[in-house]
Every structure is written in structure tokens, then in C-alpha cells.
Design a protein around this nucleic acid. Structure first.
Length: 365
DNA sequence: AACCCTTCCAACCGCGGAAAT
DNA sequence: GATTTCCGCGGTTGGAAGGGT
């Protein structure tokens, strides 16, 4: 779902009538006459509901749609994108001109999923079955520190990537759904809340994240979800949902724990504590413009960055901080296409640097 | 020829968010 | 502010088509 910018930093869907540039208001006598003439000639309609007509148009009749078979290049791109962002068919379809989300989804379900399975690759996790079996053997017994906070870790990492302008992590990692697909029985998993209550702090004291940090991360994710809606990339692209849930429920993970009261964007600045080293070192570590973009795009980013940095350095209010956050988060997403391309290249490059060991941990929902 | 099975994909379903009333 | 309508999404279904026996 592509949402467009609106006034006041708030993301709203543009009015359908405005988008189509159609006339509104009272009907004139001339319009009434035209309608009567049309209906008398063609009848009152197709006995189809509006939703069905819309679907027929968007998935089949719309101009510039391609109905021929998928090319190997398209196939490869679908697989890569699915490995990166999961079953966000609409986003994947945006990278394939002339293809609809329904086309991509059907092609995945009928061809690619089976193809990957035959190659010994789990189509959900995009990992070899042998690796999954090995992981399963490791986790089926005692709980491991990384497991019980998997979803929180994911949100934290997504939040971090948002802030640093890097790509979010891939959503699936090691999902329970994979066991359904592969015919394996799911491992025993403690509910997240129970794990928090029962785990002794000493057991996990040496891990990168403590409860406070996770709460801060959740807050960050939640706030980011409220502020990033006017960019090209749909929100659900960043705030991951499990592969079995709808896009509109994507913020459920972040909402599992209530955000602390009184959060402000000044608090957000403390999030840099997650990064290694001092502030200057952190800044130096951030490569800008990021790799993976064309030189032209990088030049555009640099120009935009210079302008925005001037504004950022002079900001004081929470609104301005929010604005700066958006700048930091989305400078790399100058276009949907270039963002996804860069994402494919970089998705796993930087996380191990900031969160050593975390990426090896599977994620549970 | 008849039946069964599999594949494919257009269409449907239900949901959440946002606009419109 | 409440309700209705519209829109887009991911998941699922049902039937047509094709192949095998």
C-alpha cells in the first residue's frame, strides 16, 4: 500500500476522488441525463460488487500489465526479495514492472516455493533444511538466551537500522512457520513474557540487551512507526510482521509491551548508547552515503544530507527531532527501487558489527 | 473414453487503516 | 465523535486445464 505525504507530517491516504481527479458534489441535470442515457443503453451494470470490479481492474484489466510468463531474472529477484522481506507481495511486485502482487504471490506459491524445496532450501527461512535441522537440534532442549527475546531483538535491530539509515533485518530468520512447511514439529518455546519473568538476570547479564534497552527499543520502534509514514517505503516494510499476518497488523510486536510514559525525542538520542564507542566514533562508523547505490543516487543523497544536516544542527523541539529522525532513518531510501537493491546487498553486512552474535540467534514470534 | 490427480491462477475472503459522511 | 465506505493487503479457495492411467 503506497501512502502519499500529507500536510503536517501525518501520513494519510489521499482522498480517492482527488487521486482520480473526478468531480464531486451535487449532480447537474446534464450529468443526470448522461447517466440515464448510459444506463438505458448498457443496463444497470454487471451485477458485480465494487470490490470485485476493482480487483478485476487492478489484477487483470489495468493497462501495462504483463501476462506472459515470469522471466528467470524476475524469478531470481522474487526469491531474493522474499528472502529479504518475506511475503510482502505488493512491495515485491513494485520491483517487477507489469506484475501484480497477486501474480507474484501465485507464482511463488505454485512454482518458486516448490522449486526451493526441491533444492533443499526451506522456502520460509531460505535456509538449507540441514541447517534448520541442526538449529532445531540445538534449541529443542534447553532454552537459549537469544530465543526468548527474539522478537524484541528483531525490533531493536530494526529500530537501530532505521536510525542509522541502514536496511532493516530480514523478517523471517527462523520462523515457527518453517516447521509447518518442512513438516517438522515446532520446538518448545517459552512465551515471551514468561521468559522475562522467569529468567534470572545473571544468566543473561552478558548479552547485548537488557530489559531496559529492549523497552527503549520498543519505544523507538513504536515512535518510528508513527513518524515515518510519509515516505515512499510503506511502514510495514520496516515494522515487520510475521509471514502469516496481514500487513496492517505489523505493529503488533512492538505493542506487546507498553511504551514507557513520558518518552520524548530527547530520550531517543540516548539510543546511541546501543552503538559501540563514543558518539564521534559512532558517527564515523556510519558510512554515508551507504554502499549499494549508484553514484548519481549517492550524490543526490549527499546534497540532501548537507541541507538537512544544517537544519538538524539547529533543531530544538520534539517535532524537529522527529523530523531529524526521519531524515536519519530514510536518507538511504531515496527511491523504493534503489532502497531494495541496496537492501539486498547490505542486509547482513552491518548487523554483526554492532550486535555480534545476535544474528546467529533464531527469531520466534 | 472415462476417471483421477495435479497444477495453475483468477477470484474471493477477511482484516485494518483511512477517508468520507 | 460515530458510522459507513473505500482501499489495499496477505491468505485462501475453487474451478478450468492438462496430464497420467
Amino acid at each position: 500500500m503506497i501512502l502519499e505525504p500529507s500536510i503536517g507530517d501525518k501520513m494519510v491516504r489521499p482522498p480517492y476522488c482527488d487521486k482520480l481527479n473526478v468531480k464531486r458534489g451535487l449532480w447537474t441535470a446534464e450529468e443526470d441525463a448522461k447517466m440515464l442515457a448510459y444506463v438505458s443503453k448498457h443496463g444497470t451494470g454487471l451485477r458485480r460488487c465494487g470490490k470485485s470490479c476493482r480487483l478485476r481492474w487492478t489484477n487483470y484489466l489495468r493497462p501495462n500489465l504483463r501476462h506472459e510468463s515470469f522471466t528467470p531474472q524476475e524469478e531470481e529477484l522474487i526469491i531474493k526479495l522474499h528472502a529479504t522481506i518475506g511475503s510482502r507481495w505488493s512491495i515485491i511486485a513494485q520491483q517487477l514492472p507489469g506484475r501484480t502482487d497477486n501474480d507474484v504471490k501465485n507464482y511463488w506459491n505454485t512454482k518458486l516455493r516448490k522449486k526451493l524445496s526441491e533444492m533443499g532450501i526451506d522456502p520460509v527461512t531460505h535456509k538449507p533444511f540441514s541447517k534448520i535441522l541442526a538449529d532445531y537440534g540445538n534449541i529443542s532442549g534447553l532454552p537459549q538466551p537469544g530465543n526468548h527475546i527474539g522478537s524484541l531483538n528483531r525490533d531493536l535491530k530494526n529500530a537501530f537500522m532505521l536510525k542509522s539509515g541502514q536496511s532493516p533485518i530480514q523478517p523471517d530468520g527462523f520462523a515457527i512457520n518453517s516447521h509447518l512447511t518442512t513438516g517438522m514439529s515446532p520446538p518448545k518455546i517459552e512465551p515471551i513474557q514468561d521468559s522475562f519473568l522467569n529468567s534470572s538476570s545473571s544468566n543473561y547479564a552478558n548479552k547485548s540487551l537488557d530489559l531496559l534497552a529492549q523497552l527503549q527499543a520498543i519505544t523507538l520502534v513504536t515512535e518510528a512507526s508513527n513518524l515515518t509514514n510519509h515516505k515512499t517505503i510503506p511502514l510495514q516494510f520496516y515494522s515487520d510482521s510475521s509471514s502469516s499476518s496481514s500487513a496492517s497488523s505489523s505493529s503488533s510486536t512492538a505493542n506487546q509491551v507498553q511504551s514507557p510514559q513520558g518518552f520524548s525525542w530527547r530520550d531517543f538520542l540516548l539510543e546511541d548508547a546501543f552503538l559501540p564507542g563514543n558518539a564521534q566514533e559512532q558517527e564515523n562508523m556510519r558510512e554515508f552515503p551507504p554502499n549499494g547505490f549508484s553514484s548519481q543516487t549517492q550524490n543526490e543523497m549527499l546534497q540532501s544530507h548537507d541541507t538537512k544536516t544544517d537544519k538538524k544542527n539547529n533543531s530544538n523541539t520534539d517535532d524537529e527531532m522527529a523530523y531529524n529522525f526521519q531524515i536519519n532513518s530514510f536518507e538511504a531510501s531515496s527511491s523504493n527501487s534503489s532502497f531494495v537493491e541496496a537492501m539486498l546487498d547490505q542486509q547482513n553486512d552491518l548487523l554483526p558489527e554492532y550486535f555480534p552474535g545476535l544474528l546467529e540467534e533464531p527469531f520466534f514470534y
